[in-house]
């Protein structure tokens, strides 16, 4: 007799779990495409980008330029050779700048210091600046990622 009696609570529990579970599944199903939608895609490595004419870079010049949307420093040594570095500090990604007084590259945010070779020589930066490739093509300076 007792087996035939409807058992309220377990049935209600089952319905509760079924409804709650379905809601959770729907929530996850809706959240996933939303999360994917707002997450932007990755971008390719920078460059190649034309940053100026050879005449604009006399020997001994350090100039801040943009390579795509990323800041970079182009250094022309006294012997006429070129080097370029990403101007993004390897500590917390502030934009670094050249200090003519101390002839070094400095990050003002957390007092990071780099040599003119891009090496981290003081403060919190954990790595050297990323080096970029410079090519001179018919008087035009082109900067791109190495490799």
């Amino acid at each position: 007799m007792s087996n035939d009696e409807p058992k309220g609570p377990p049935r209600r529990d089952f319905l509760g779990i079924a409804v709650g579970g379905s809601a959770a599944v729907f929530a996850v199903a809706a959240a996933y495409p939303v999360a994917r939608f707002i997450e932007p895609g990755t971008r390719p490595r920078p460059g190649p980008a034309v940053v100026g004419k050879l005449i604009e870079f006399p020997p001994g010049t350090v100039r801040s330029v943009m390579v795509d949307d990323r800041p970079a420093l182009v250094v022309r040594a006294q012997d006429g050779s070129f080097r370029a570095f990403s101007a993004i500090c390897t500590h917390l990604q502030c934009v670094v700048g050249y200090s003519p007084e101390r002839n070094q590259i400095e990050c003002p945010c957390h007092r990071g210091v780099y040599s003119m070779d891009g090496l981290n020589i003081g403060g919190p930066p954990p790595r050297p600046l990323e080096e970029l490739q410079v090519t001179v093509n018919e008087g035009t300076i082109i900067v791109s990622a190495v490799g």
């Binding site: 800041p71 101007a87 502030c94 934009v95 670094v96 700048g97 003002p108 945010c109």
Partner: peptide
């Protein structure tokens, strides 16, 4: 100006 170093950060 993204080219300038981050002064006043």
């Amino acid at each position: 100006d993204p080219r300038l170093s981050s002064t006043g950060a």
